[in-house]
Amino acid sequence: MDLLPNISLAAFCQQLLVGLSRTTILFIVASGLSLVLGVLRIPNVAHGSLYMIGAFLAYTIASAAGGGTFGFWLALVLAPLGVALISLAVERGLFCRLYEREHLMLLLFTFAFTLVFGDLVKLVWGSDFRSMNAPTSLQGSFDVLGFPFPKYNLFLLIIGPIVALGLWWLTNKTKIGKIAKAAAVDREMVAAVGINVSWVFASVFVIGCFLAGLGGALVAPTQNITQGMDHGIIIETFLIVIIGGLGNIWGALLGALIFGLTDAIGILIFPQFAIVFPYVAVITVLMLRPKGLLKSVW
């Protein structure tokens, strides 16, 4: 194989676009993980499982609603809410009692939850592969510079900035965002001024998990909805959070961009060894900036 195959500029731009749409999903899931990590100091390994449950819930809701266009939109709204509800129960029932424990303990607890959720999914949905359809208007593709670009990916490209803006608004402009920031720095001080820190943490945890569910619901029409889809995403998003800077949402965005784009471009330029590209990028970033690209602002 040629070391430098003949790649047109059009193909390169098109590949960038495809990479960006994948970045959207990575960002949405990673930002939720980063939020929980930053405020609650919980390395939530079960985040990937919630993403999986989001996808399964989306499938169930969409099928129950007839599987058409309406079913998809309903699923996109309800599935993340369902995941948020599950996470609320988990937070109130268990995690809220564990905040004082050390990191390793929390890590083990969340790891235990990946096993519990994994078996739960198997019990509820069984082992068959599941699949749901994108709405008719988002099916198929159109030509960008002579190459096919799936309409659904364009939809993802629109959703990504909306979620980013929403998160920016939430953390900078709302009261809960400001309290959460303060609570992350000094929990006792916030409690001393009469704020119920426990509920602030619960809200942040639920919002973070909602994002996992949203990511799951968004990928559901493009993927095979099956057990084990939690493994890949949790590894990738953890890497993204680490290179971006722990707990920094903009770091998650930057990390997702680096990860998603090196992946897509690697596939185009050196398809035989494409798998290694995003990981090489991660290693490079960590060698240059061991604490991540951006500061942990929370």
């Binding site: 193909a11 098109q14 590949q15 495809v18 670009f149 993927q223 596939i267 185009l268």
Partner: peptide, 9 residues
Amino acid sequence: PDFTPYITA
């Protein structure tokens, strides 16, 4: 999870 970039390439 997503084969789109492979297929376009």
